[in-house]
């Protein structure tokens, strides 16, 4: 059956409009729920740096929100470690800072949220400082959160996530076993320089003696490099804040 061009074009236009309306309608309808889901996921990732994944998996969404509200305080700082409360007349909170969007700006102009994990209902009893990470893996963006102990040197935990790394290879950065390798490592060397923690090439070696190296992921060297760069960059951006906290805790100890 051969139809005229007018028929084909009319048909295509009607189809496009109908399908387009259907899709935008769904997007409108589900948008708020999706935003909630993303916000919840973000909170889970932040908490993932300080408590175990199983613990989080056992919580209902309400419990996650409650736990987050009780245990996490947050501030936003700039590259110099100064606290930022508003930008262009709009109030800034850590939860509203989009790390991915900020990543597109130059490092000096970005906003840097800090999530402070503290004792229940007691913001002064700080346990960990959780800093976001963002960078490039092999195929797409990778991101995560790193928790530093109050000495601002020891890694308390890390969560890593990715948009499109190869399943079974680079995507393994999301595995608890891989993330556990970072625990207890330190980010400053003996002379006080920021060296971060580097994932090595190859897998299966024991790096427990080296405070700045962790075992690699076989077949995912480029993703590992991405993680290394991301850690080094972001800890660098937060360096002013970290040094600041370090000296203040040192004074407190004295």
């Amino acid at each position: 059956m051969q139809q005229s061009n007018t028929y084909i074009i009319t048909f295509s236009v009607i189809l496009t409009v109908v399908l387009g309306l259907l899709l935008s309608g769904t997007s409108q309808l589900l948008g708020p729920r999706q935003k909630e889901a993303i916000a919840l996921d973000n909170k889970k990732q932040i908490l993932g740096a300080v408590i175990s994944g199983e613990e989080i998996a056992a919580m209902t969404p309400q419990e996650v929100n409650e736990y987050y509200n009780n245990r996490i305080a947050s501030v936003v700082v700039d590259i110099n470690g100064k606290e930022v409360t508003e930008q262009d007349g709009v109030a800034v909170t850590a939860e509203t800072v989009d790390i991915a969007k900020n990543y597109k700006k130059s490092a000096e102009d970005r906003l840097y949220p800090v999530y402070i994990f503290h004792g229940e209902g007691n913001p002064d009893e700080v346990a960990n400082y959780v800093l976001p990470l963002y960078g490039a893996g092999l195929w797409d963006a990778i991101w995560g959160y790193i928790a530093l102990d109050t000495d601002m040197n020891t890694v308390g935990g890390i969560t890593l996530a990715h948009a499109g790394e190869t399943p079974g290879l680079g995507a393994r950065i999301t595995e608890p076993g891989v993330q556990a390798r970072y625990e207890g490592k330190t980010i400053f060397n003996e002379s006080g320089e920021l060296v971060a923690v580097e994932m090595q090439k190859g897998e299966g070696k024991d790096y427990s003696d080296d405070p700045h190296q962790v075992d690699g992921m076989s077949g995912a060297t480029i993703t590992a490099k991405g993680v290394n760069n991301m850690l080094k960059n972001y800890l660098g951006y937060y360096k002013a804040y970290i040094e600041n906290k370090k000296s203040s805790t040192a004074v407190a100890v004295l």
């Binding site: 189809l15 496009t16 399908l19 259907l22 899709l23 769904t26 997007s27 589900l30 729920r33 999706q34 889901a37 993303i38 919840l40 996921d41």
Partner: peptide
């Protein structure tokens, strides 16, 4: 177009209810 629309619907629903 039809298949892509349906797949996008599935994906959107999953994103909202089973993130």
């Amino acid at each position: 177009a039809v298949v892509a629309t349906l797949v996008t619907l599935v994906s959107e629903v999953l994103k909202a209810f089973a993130y």
